[in-house]
Design a protein around this nucleic acid. Structure first.
Lengths: 215, 215, 215, 215
DNA sequence: AATGAATGAGTTTTCATTCAT
DNA sequence: TATGAATGAAAACTCATTCAT
């Protein structure tokens, strides 16, 4: 004789959109802290203040929730890129702004890096399967290419710089600093995450790239 | 009772060093594939072909095993650095060699990156607690500093380049490329991990840094 | 920071064979009472008095445990069949003995029927996948065939009786009575499971089959 | 506020009878496939194309829905029995028709058997609690009794055959064949569910019973 | 009458760890 | 040193049921 199960009774606010949002926010935090494997669905739902089942109701499973978080952070990056207005700037200034924006975005969203770690380890399995991310190609490589060409034409940039790799370099110079600060600080025995160190790093990256582009 | 026959049970080779090594190798692979949280002690011992209990016998627990793997990969890096013989080289060549060695090491040991990810997410908790790693400070920052000074004195490098940040940049330009190839490839829609793409990247990184150091 | 998990501490008797047996016994009972879907692994391990994980340690999963139970009850049937010594008996007596044995086995093992129900609903998925059951073909169809031939030759059985179907009929006449006693009793409004009713049924089945075999 | 537009939300057909019917049909399928414990209320409502809550609205709970399905299939059987017109037939033909009708009904409604399995395992709990089923006593036992008497009087049937048990035998000879075809086929290594095998079985059952009734 | 969001108690399975041998 | 049986605490995911709308 199967015991009848109980069913809920607490007062329930009906706000699906808010529920979804709360789950996403909690998930982003939990995935950033503990990774995909280390994140706990229980913790996510508890911190969102909603029933655990709603994770499955709204997203399907833990993996799909992780993908939704990835889509969110990529969306943020694309939005930041859209806001960057590099048209009309001098080539050097445009590259400078781009680097600073990239650096500042990582500084403002330190979880982006750790969220991507598991995805890269897994061969970008989620990203590849996402229709939404497919539609989110960054316009920046084209932009970099255009700026490089202008600079070359104006005689202020050297020739032969690969725009894709330059873009990767700009990202990597900031990314690695943020992603590996803890081990680097431990190994070097000095705190690289202080505001001063961060300012130094920002200036260094801008310098490095701009100096390297000189003809 | 008959005298004990050696064929009655499985042959148990008593070779502690070999057992330890097999466990470490299996652990390195498993941690690289699945991260600290995602790694399974069962899988590690099974792949090592030894009993699970020996993980605890030799290392204490899963975390300590992870630390042992970290120590191993750091040891490899230090050894590679020791082998680098930059003394006596012209400054530009010395920097070039350093960059290439850094790039090549990551290419040869792709697991180094993913092994570090969890450690950085966790605030370098293990690294900080390790006596062995404390004693393994890299001599490279000093080396970079020396090379920079020589270059400046010889009039072939510009002044004012922070050696710590240059070192971080050199590492980051390669590191990010290797660590984020899967997502970058997915987002850009082109395979960045091909041998040709890798050669391009290597040349780009050397170029970028050397060009940026010009006076 | 993943909390270290606890691990057991209670006194443990080391007797793998006994543990396996206890699990099987408890599983047989639970599957018989509640079916495959309705059975609870928790209940099984609790009643066996062992840790739940041992179900997975010894059997793999719930389905494999169910298969092990099926193999057990089939083994019992085959053993009972082996014990039946029909050789040398007069054909009528041989058939009579066979029917009675079949009836008595179901009476003694009422769980056999309910254990098979889910298996038949599922298309015999487990049975088909079992090496052990493959090797357990019943010798009885051949035996029935032989008895029928003898009876026909002796002029006491009619010709043209299909031995496979006769075997199925013998089984079915008892099986249905035992499997459907509850609903039949409810519908007829009389208790068909009383000892008297059971004796009646047994006699009826033997009669029905033997009378039908007359030339 | 604008006047309510009918196109604003999904069209909701108000057809309680149809909704009930769709739920029952979906439930019958789901219970037959997965049993009482294995059936999913979600699956039932989804397949019925109606909201899950309506299960509770119309039937109360899962158990009551299961009972409603049982009542439905019993109703079908009774209706088929009512259609059987055995009056006026010769006793042998009457019995023959009865057996064939019984066989054909199971062949046409293979879910009847699996629907009853859980009920029998549960001690006919639902059937016993149903007013509707109480009122549905089969008239067939009386009919069989009458036919037997006629046959005995006419000298074509032997005496002493218990009509209740004959009825159970008739049912069982077909029921077991249909209910256990999967395991029997697996064990015998031959497909007992083919049309040819089914025809054989039908003939065998009619034969067996009629031959057994000879004086 | 109808919807689907929300609930709480499970349910199978997994896992790091420890104990007896 | 080595084995594998045993443990307890979760972990992801499920389910019947109920509530607000």
């Amino acid at each position: 004789m199967p015991s009848k199960r109980s069913g809920g009774s607490r007062p329930q606010r009906r706000d699906p959109a808010a529920t979804r949002r709360k789950l996403l926010t909690a998930a982003r935090r939990e995935f950033a802290r503990n990774g995909l494997a280390g994140a706990r669905v229980d913790e996510i739902s508890a911190r969102a203040g909603v029933n655990k089942q709603l994770v499955y109701h709204y997203f399907g499973d833990k993996d799909a929730l992780y993908l939704a978080v990835l889509e969110w952070v990529y969306e943020e990056i694309r939005e930041q890129e859209r806001k960057l207005n590099l048209e009309g700037l001098a080539p050097q200034e445009a590259i400078g702004r781009l680097i600073e924006a990239s650096f500042d975005h990582l500084a403002a969203h330190p979880d982006f890096i750790v969220l991507l770690n598991d995805e890269n380890r897994g061969g970008a399995r989620h990203v590849r399967g996402s229709r939404r991310l497919e539609a989110m190609h960054s316009p920046l490589v084209k932009m970099v290419s255009k700026i490089l060409n202008e600079g070359v034409r104006a005689g202020i940039f050297r020739k032969g710089v690969n725009p894709v790799h330059l873009y990767i370099s700009i990202a990597g110079l900031s990314y690695f600093y943020f992603s590996n600060t803890p081990t680097l600080s431990a190994i070097f025995g000095k705190d690289l995450s202080s505001p001063a160190a961060r300012r130094d790093r920002r200036r260094h990256v801008v310098d490095l790239v701009l100096q390297s582009l000189r003809p």
